[in-house]
Design a protein around this nucleic acid. Structure first.
Lengths: 258, 258
DNA sequence: GCCGCCATCTGGTCTAGTTCAGTAACGGCT
DNA sequence: AGCCGTTACTGAACTAGACCAGATGGCGGC
């Protein structure tokens, strides 16, 4: 796997007002220079914090602040107690294309992998019940998966499925099969509408652990409710992505009155 | 204006795996306790860093790290050299409803305001030209606005309009009029399709200054291209939001094959 | 009342350390 | 070859300070 230079989110076009470059510290500039000039290792790994603090003649706190700024910009990421890494190119995630994870990733010449962390039936807690429009305590299937792109864990997702719609679904292969494909082929359920909520947030403890990230690290949250052909909410998915790993796109006709 | 308690992004339902609560420091817990128990001031302002460090018997660096974690969670925000504040409820921004800012904000019982920072004609730089599908150097109107909700600056937006589509548009009142309404009423141009790109990023220097934020602070970026009834890209908007201020929603039929 | 100056307040940024806790590599033993 | 223990490596988290720079408020003069 070749690693390319970090892909920061591009800022406004360069003909805008002057001083678009932040009054950034000399250290951030130096780090950017290092990223631009050195061939990253095969894994994209940066030198250790102690090496970098000596190299740039600064203290570890100051270095860490600069590194965390670059992390927030999506240029680099950290793995808890393992090191800092150059971020690979972002995956483009078209919200309305509704591609299964494997196909979406593979279509961008990346390697997808999935691990099932949990798959049980349990009673719906208040938030889930409200989202699915069912009674609190009604049975739901609760599936948790971690997803990797090119070996890097980037997505922690929890699915809540109405148990009454999908009897026996946990017996299927949840590693290789997409849920929506299972819905169609085994239950005759097709998704007619989908509703998303998106926000910029942080990784909670479990997600961070599954993604080898620091708890509290930057994340992009994508929650989705899928509705079947009868307008009934059939599942609720809660995705936490490493925020440097994806760029979301939406393309549609606006719904305002003509 | 009454300020309510901070609205952190809700995490997964509480019936998930144990340890969903991050192994957070005692300081973060203490700060959360302070937020929950004390009536925030009318402006939502927190005590100064020096007051809080004495109160919680810690150092400023440690306190700042804890505060910045709460900022990343969307519970509080900082204004550069002015203080820390409790974040008000998020604005819901329905991407496909295509409501003008004023209407969107007012419909959620919030008070919208707009300031025009720049409105000029200039040649299209490469990135803008590529987005609009025009020649590099072709004339575009470049408009920069800052938007406030309830007096708080939350959005810095740059618009690039094809000059050939909108002769004389800069003479209009860009403070009170929505651009899409101007397009329709004065130029007979209606938007037939819209395409978004969304990512979690940081505020650059100019945006931070306009929003009274720290450069490098957390932001949600929303870029949009609007297409007219003939499928021609007519403008490109680049929005940088304080990331705690909005929650994005999308609701549509999926575009996958049935 | 308005404006300018000054002092104080606020966060912004940095240095210099220390200890803690999980990861990874290496060597020895079965 | 696999497993276990030990050591070194890594980031995580904290203390104690210092100086910088913009914001704000108060006071005095016109």
């Amino acid at each position: 796997m070749t690693t390319t230079l970090p892909h920061a989110t591009p800022f406004s076009a360069d003909n805008a007002l002057p001083r678009l470059t932040p009054p950034t510290s000399r250290l951030q500039q130096a780090l950017l220079g290092m990223l631009a000039e050195e061939a990253p290792s095969a894994t994209g790994r940066l030198p250790s914090e102690r090496q970098m603090m000596e190299r740039f003649s600064t203290t570890r706190i100051t270095l860490r602040e600069a590194l965390m700024q670059l992390e927030a910009e999506g240029r680099i990421y950290r793995e808890s107690r393992r090191g800092w890494f150059v971020s690979p190119p972002r995956l483009r995630y078209d919200l309305l294309a509704s591609l299964p994870f494997k196909e979406m990733v593979a279509s961008q010449q990346r390697c997808p992998e999935t691990e099932v962390l949990k798959a049980t039936q349990c009673p719906a807690q208040p938030k889930v019940a409200a989202r699915l429009g069912i009674l609190e305590g009604a049975p739901v299937f609760h599936i948790i998966r971690a997803r990797r792109i090119d070996g890097r864990p980037v997505l922690y997702v929890e699915h809540y499925l109405r148990a009454d719609c999908f009897p026996g679904i946990l017996a299927h292969d949840l590693v290789t099969c997409s849920l929506t494909e299972l819905y169609r082929s085994h239950y005759g359920i097709r998704i007619s509408r989908v509703s998303f909520e998106l926000c910029s947030t942080v990784l909670h403890c479990r997600a961070a652990e599954a993604l080898r990230a620091a708890s509290g690290g930057p994340a992009q949250r994508v929650t989705r409710i899928n509705y079947d052909q009868n307008g009934r909410a059939i599942d609720y998915d809660d995705e936490l992505w490493r925020h440097d790993a994806i760029e979301l796109t939406v393309s549609a006709a606006p719904q305002s009155s003509a």
